[in-house]
């Protein structure tokens, strides 16, 4: 084993895990997110038009995940969104977050 390489390896791992301090996006699978997004886009316009329901295209992935967790815990209060969030596990939320973040937003 080359010591320098080992240090670099663990440093990288440390940095990565630090960057994801809350692990909000662990296990994200954008393809799965695309499938799951079918439930979202019945209401959240896929064209990024807000006529009464917020646009979620292009939303920062961590912001997206944080909001969904807030609905899950009841910190944010909306009957439809609490119901939607409650049956999503962490990987599913992460997958949706990464999928929507990659879509062009309205701005």
């Amino acid at each position: 084993m080359k010591p320098l390489w080992t240090v670099f390896f663990f440093a990288t791992i440390f940095c990565l895990s630090n960057a994801r301090a809350d692990n909000l996006l662990d296990g994200a699978d954008s393809g799965y997110g695309e499938y799951l997004s079918g439930e979202c886009v019945t209401c959240h316009s896929k064209d990024g038009v807000d006529k009464g329901i917020p646009v979620i295209n292009g939303l920062d992935a961590e912001v997206f995940a944080s909001i969904m967790h807030a609905y899950k815990t009841g910190d944010m209060d909306h009957p439809v969104m609490m119901m939607v969030a409650n049956r999503l596990d962490e990987e599913q939320i992460a997958s949706l977050a990464v999928y929507f973040a990659a879509l062009p937003g309205t701005n």
Binding site: V41, K46, I53
Partner: peptide, 15 residues
Amino acid sequence: ESIGWYEGITTDMFS
């Protein structure tokens, strides 16, 4: 919200 939903679902169906 229901107005937003109409926009969302018709976009989802037809575009």
